[in-house]
Design a protein around this nucleic acid. Structure first.
Lengths: 349, 349
DNA sequence: ATAGGTAACGGAATCGATTGCGTAAATTTA
DNA sequence: TAAATTTACGCAATCGATTCCGTTACCTAT
């Protein structure tokens, strides 16, 4: 097996009778090299099949043109789209994307964090694990001037770039939508309250009830651990067996919302007539379940693109950039059948 | 903003009065360093907060302890699970994972391929884009002794590691299942025939028909471009409007299969009584659609894990490893409601 | 006691690109 | 035309880890 030798700037230098410095500068469009020489060198480089050694450049500059991504799980629709957005944006600028998943374990988040740090990433995009409370493991990036972009599941006690959606307004609007459809006893499937996204969605829910004169009943607020299908099933069963069951559910994710729909159907409860349901995320399953699930959509891929862009821009700029910049993206209530009480009422009249 | 200095093996050398060589060897458990010294050095390294510089090591060794992943799209359930499996396995061995998506464009596949090559990845995991026919862009990896693992969508004209499922048998079994359920006119939603997975699934379908004495009708074989929801809808409509419509569909993926179910329902065709449907992949939507979709499941995450393992093992071994090793994993027919004609017939009697 | 062997470590080159400093030639200015 | 710039480039150190060759000191066998 023949191992072909790689072309380096030294090979180019020898071939063209220039010094390696000139070659390097020419390839980087340094201003102190004449246009002619740059053209000459670049053409020769192309012809000889020169390809820059990122490792060498990285060693010298102590960075690697690589964006690190630290998330809970890759195989979730939201996360996959997020990564997709990061990757597309990064690659257009010649950056690589390094991924790692914590599986929602604090411990994994720390070790992955260290591994990425050691890899001299240019910047880090993070969506916090479910367990994470302490932010200590991120400090070293700040100390080194490496930008961190928190996305979706962000901390509130750590100053850095953030890309989020307006979870409060989304929660408020989703709940308001159910109210407008005639619901008066609306349950909420809430996520872990130390994660901003779930806390704010719940706040929105609560305020929507208050501002519309509906009482808040603690029995109707179910706190989930993982918002899984199984948990959703159990919670729905419990709710529907109450002497005074809810007539609406706002779930903090689609998985649990779908389980609620399917569970209700199995129990003979009509959706949306007896129980209107709205979820969160607009996962593919939302448009497949019957009745189709109303939900809140957010631009996952765009969030990824913006996160990557933050890092790319940060690296191009001077150091004292404002790290605290927060990007808030809008959401949209996607009305499908699972919440359309009114229209349905009209139709059946 | 204080920038903390990184600890290097030279710092350790100075501190402990050893040479950098010894430090390096000790940290790598080289046999020519005494146990005592190794212990001493490792403890000091730990205490001083030493972290190896992968870039420096990578430059020297011309590789980076990084596995490159080249796939079509991240945000597909199969691909996300695949990456998840790769990442978990790689990280356990201290390897990083670099991802890139081609969006099923040949051109992107080439440029991503080059970018990964330039990043000195230790090995490459590839699932071919829909368009790829020529394999030239992969040759340089072979020339360099960098292992490539093709997974799922693999080439048949390129000698390298492969991790696949038995698509032929899966296609055969899925079709056979429909036959056993009483279907006699089974349509097939086929994917691009230059991709092994779709070609073999179709072959299995054809042989199942033949071996069970059913005629092959070209009208019932629809060749899809992307097996999308929209394409599935259109194809289903066309099939059901035939004077002699099919009573079963074997779709090469779940997306199209689900669209068939939903389309049939809308057209007043009963699933599975009038039209039995079976898909492929066991995506989340398969268990959500009603009637739930029978399908073929394959171990996406495990395929990723095995692919990563191939690369890790290859790097540990001597050079003349057998590159042509092919791993074939089993699949499973998941029987749900969309194909259960017989049982349903019994129930309704 | 001496040749031969081994265990334990050090010197210094190497990987490839970058960059501060220096310099010769070309150009402009006075 | 001499002086002052400017242009265009070279020299050599640097980033941090690895590794091929040594080189001691100590041990063993004859």
């Amino acid at each position: 097996m023949k191992i072909k030798k790689e072309v380096t700037i030294y090979d180019l230098a020898k071939e063209l009778n220039y010094s390696p410095s000139t070659i390097s500068r020419a390839l980087n469009n340094h201003k102190s090299i004449s246009k002619k020489t740059i053209k000459l060198i670049k053409e020769a480089a192309e012809e000889m099949g020169y390809r820059p050694n990122n490792l060498a450049a990285g060693l010298r500059n102590n960075k690697s043109n690589t964006i690190g991504v630290l998330i809970s799980r890759i195989n979730r629709p939201f996360m996959a789209s997020l990564i997709s957005g990061i990757e597309e944006t990064a690659r257009k600028s010649g950056y690589n994307v390094l991924i790692s998943q914590s599986n929602d374990k604090y411990e994994n988040e720390i070790s992955n964090c260290n591994a990425l740090y050691d890899s001299r990433i240019t910047g880090l995009v993070v969506s916090l694990s479910m367990e994470t409370v302490d932010m200590g493991h991120f400090q070293k990036f700040i100390d080194k001037g490496i930008p961190i972009v928190f996305v979706d599941r962000v901390p509130d006690n750590f100053n850095s770039y953030k890309v989020v959606i307006d979870n409060y307004t989304a929660g408020y609007s989703a709940t308001k939508h159910l109210i407008e459809q005639g619901c008066t006893r609306i349950a909420h499937f809430a996520g872990a309250q130390h994660r901003n996204v779930y806390e704010e969605r719940k706040k929105g829910y609560l305020d929507a009830l208050r501002e519309n004169g509906l009482p808040i009943e603690e029995d109707l607020i179910i706190h989930f651990k993982t918002l899984s299908f199984e948990e959703g099933n159990k919670a729905t069963k419990k709710l529907l067996k109450m002497s005074n069951p809810p007539d609406g559910i706002f779930s903090a994710n689609d998985t649990a919302a779908v389980s609620a729909i399917m569970c209700a159907k199995k129990m003979g409860v009509n959706v949306p007539q007896d129980l209107a349901v709205i979820g969160f995320n607009d996962d593919p399953i939302a448009s497949i379940v019957q009745p189709s699930l109303s939900t809140v959509s957010h631009p996952a891929s765009k969030m990824g693109a913006i996160s990557a862009r933050r890092i790319l821009d940060h690296s191009g700029q001077n150091y004292d950039t404002d790290l605290s910049e927060i990007t808030v993206l809008g959401t949209e209530i996607i009305v499908r059948d699972s919440s359309l009480k009114k229209v349905h009422t009209l139709e059946t009249k």
